[in-house]
Nucleic acid binder design. Structure first.
Lengths: 127, 127
DNA sequence: ATCTTATTGCAATTTAGTTGCATTTATATA
DNA sequence: TATATAAATGCAACTAAATTGCAATAAGAT
């Protein structure tokens, strides 16, 4: 009994992430696949893919939840090295930046996960 | 013609931030002041206070927008040293953590602002 | 005191996200 | 291959956060 089944919906959504290395918002996916599957299915497939560490999610400054390839804390132990997401103010695209952000440990707080959002202009919009 | 007027609503909302050094979600403020002002007013007062650099905002992992005292980039030049917000998974409170996070500059990207969310357990919930 | 315009309240609306339930489908097993 | 079963889906209704238009009100400059 595998936890995740390779259904048509799963394959379609995964293909979207293979075509596009950027983070994708749920809303974009719902629109992209509005003929192929129900919006509830999009939400639920993404949930499963996140639980399976195939995708990870974060909430952008616009309040929209986005997903991107890869599990949240790829190499476990050092939880506090996590990489940031970039959101372009001009074109709205967001991408994962392959840079580690190091967070010092904080007395009296236990940090389980962290999210980092960088906001500015991307290479395409800098011209 | 000053841009922001010191109305009763503005004073009430500012007092909430003076009583509480933590970040406060819009929803909390709407509930807190549901007898004193309309929820639309809460949204609009907060917008103005952010534009005036009296408050700054971020969106938590729960998708709720929160505000906290202080402009976004208090001491300008070194934009990339910004301090994180902490969100407690257990009790839901969030606070500003007085720690600087240093982000290396990234080729081809211009970073204007950044947001850092640390998720885990706060001191009260660790017992 | 008056005028100008920022601000507010209210109701309607939009939109992201959730839930319950009946139906369908993937896949393990006989 | 056929069948059983639990996962996955579609649909419709729903919740809640946030937005909008407009008329009424109030701050503060003159």
């Amino acid at each position: 009994m595998s936890i995740i089944r390779k259904t048509k919906s799963v394959r379609l959504i995964l293909s979207a992430f293979n075509d596009n290395k950027d983070a994708i918002s749920i809303v974009e996916l719902i629109n992209k696949f509005n003929k192929k599957m129900n919006k509830t299915t999009v939400y639920r497939v993404l949930e499963r893919l996140e639980k399976s560490s195939i995708l990870h999610s974060f909430v952008g400054k616009d309040g929209l939840k986005r997903y991107a390839k890869g599990g949240k804390n790829s190499n476990s132990k050092k939880i506090l090295n996590s990489h940031p997401h970039f959101l372009c103010e001009d074109c709205g695209t967001s991408s994962c930046i392959p840079i580690d952000i190091i967070i010092p440990s904080i007395p009296n707080y236990t940090i389980k996960t962290s999210e980092h959002l960088l906001i500015g202009q991307c290479k395409n919009c800098l011209s």
